[in-house]
């Protein structure tokens, strides 16, 4: 039963990623693209954890944690750049 639920969740987050890609493609400005990238990062974390469940290894949590941190820092850096025109002042 878990296999079916896993497949369903994989499908949902995969379609979510495609939605985000389309949003990046049609976005009206830079801020929307940053927002879509941030959402992509969150979806990818979910996909990594799901893959960890389906292969029954705990190996992917470190990857997910690192991805969460890089995603957060990159979003902050993008926003800082839009706000200030510079990242490290």
């Amino acid at each position: 039963m878990i296999e079916y639920a896993l497949t369903f969740a994989f499908g949902c987050f995969g379609i979510g990623l495609l939605c985000n890609l389309y949003r990046i493609f049609i976005a009206p400005g830079v801020v929307d693209r940053v927002l879509a990238l941030d959402t992509m990062v969150i979806n990818i974390i979910a996909l990594l954890v799901l893959y960890g469940i389906s292969t029954k290894t705990g190996m992917y949590f470190e990857a997910a944690l690192l991805f969460a941190m890089t995603g957060f820092v990159s979003t902050v850096a993008y926003c800082k750049f839009i706000l200030r025109g510079d990242i490290i002042e």
């Binding site: 639920a5 369903f8 969740a9 949902c12 979510g16 990623l17 939605c19 985000n20 959402t39 979806n43």
Partner: peptide, 14 residues
């Protein structure tokens, strides 16, 4: 939990 999470994830992206 997995199904609920999938639904919320796709609603967020939608």
């Amino acid at each position: 939990l997995l199904i609920a999470a999938g639904v919320f994830g796709i609603v967020g992206s939608f």
